[in-house]
Design a binder for these strands. Structure first.
Lengths: 145, 145
DNA sequence: CGATAGCGTAACAAGTAGTGTTACGGTCTA
DNA sequence: TAGACCGTAACACTACTTGTTACGCTATCG
């Protein structure tokens, strides 16, 4: 099951932004992600549409969070990037009128719905603030070592 | 999250084979799936490797089940097609030494593992025989209507 | 008011994965 | 030995994400 890496990348960026507190330009974010400013704008635009970040043009502009990390969950980011559905049940559509195909699709559909609910609950429980804390703690631990 | 349709298609085929009882050629299976015999062989080869079906070459050859539908679960088919992992956590790998990235990946990993376990349990509970029964029942219902 | 630093967006190339198709070789059986 | 099978390589097609270039708009600084 392929997935796109935008979720992980955006979480990464948002946590950095929250920890640093300020405004970041697409250019700097692109460097964090080893990518291109245009890719960043493309993806951040989804987050803006969902109200997680806002952008300002012109000199001194850039991207900033609209609320603290503690009020953003992984689920929020996921929804912003991909909408309601997280997992897509891979159904077949070769003979829509075949009862066997329909029965198989039905079972698959239900199984994926269960998994999706699990994932949703997990995503809902993790705030970006938590991720920031874990990162800070492990950075500390490394420094001591 | 993209998925490939092989799981649903193979379930479809296996149930048909189980209900009809006999041996099927790649040619006939390809017709069931609106596709090409080569595609069928490619995919069936994975099932054979996992011991779900066997093939015989030569005149009168073809594919057949190695055991009854009641002894094949969706999970078996899944494993045969994709191996151990069903869901692939979409992690980022832009700065492997960055503690923020690592913390984000860790949380995502854990969430996906939960979802994978759910899916696994669901897949394990459904046998192909069940799907066959549902299909037969709904075919009956349609005939009465 | 103009230069500069930003974002917004379109357009296109590149990489990836599944699928469809052709071609050819091997094997079994009538 | 011919024909009906599978096995497999090779290649085109499609769809999608990502990467890149190019150009336009906007806000600020000097």
């Amino acid at each position: 099951m392929r997935q796109d890496g935008r979720l992980a990348r955006m979480i990464h960026v948002l946590v950095h932004m929250g920890l640093l507190g300020g405004r970041e330009t697409s250019e700097r974010i692109a460097q964090m992600l080893n990518t291109n400013p245009v890719v960043v704008r493309r993806t951040m635009a989804s987050l803006r549409q969902y109200g997680i970040v806002e952008s300002e043009g012109g000199r001194g502009g850039g991207w900033s969070l609209t609320r603290p990390l503690a009020e953003i969950t992984i689920l929020d980011v996921q929804r912003a990037l991909q909408g309601e559905t997280i997992l897509d049940a891979p159904l077949s559509n070769d003979h829509p009128s075949c009862p066997v195909e329909r029965a198989a699709n039905g079972k698959l559909q239900r199984a994926f719905e269960s998994a999706e609910q699990t994932l949703e609950r997990e995503f809902e429980q993790v705030t970006l603030a938590e991720i920031g804390e874990i990162a800070m703690a492990s950075a500390q631990a490394e420094k001591r070592a």
